[in-house]
Amino acid sequence: MELVKPDIGLLFWMTTCFILLLVLMKKFAWGPILKALNEREQGIQTALDQAEEAQKQISEATSRVAQILEEGKKEKEKLIKETQIELSEYKKEQQSKINIQMDAQLKSVKDEIAQQKRAAIGELKNTVAELSIDIAEKILKKELENPNQHNSLIMDSVEDLQI
């Protein structure tokens, strides 16, 4: 029966030593070990979360870049179109401006020509009248006393010339 009869000495040592072991292990071993394990697990978890977050941000950024590129492309096409339209409008406008200007110039040139022509004609008329007067004077000096009668007579005849 020695097998199942606990020995007082071993009972005493087992109780005291085990309690001592428990206290020492709790304070110096399990405390720090479990704390460190916990912290490391939390650290790993946070790192994983952060990595996931970063992944998400990267994919978001990538999609945003693609979006921006797409928008840029559209903008470019729009700008080109607008510019083309503007350019053709501008061309038309310029063309019409030039036309108007040219018309105006042409008109003023024509007017001047007409004016010059009229002036020349007027002058010519006067010169002819004077010449006629001179001629008539010289002719009628001997025949007429009143030069004014002669003058109007000549003027009438000049008007009748119809140049």
């Binding site: 020995d7 000495g9 040592w13 030593c17 085990f18 110096f28 071993a29 070990i33």
Partner: peptide, 23 residues
């Protein structure tokens, strides 16, 4: 048995306190 008990306790303390320092 008591000797073995104390011996095993010393091993446990030595091993686990060493480990906890490394942690």
């Amino acid at each position: 048995n008591v000797f073995s008990l104390i011996f095993s306790i010393l091993i446990l303390l030595f091993v686990f306190i060493t480990i906890s320092k490394r942690y």
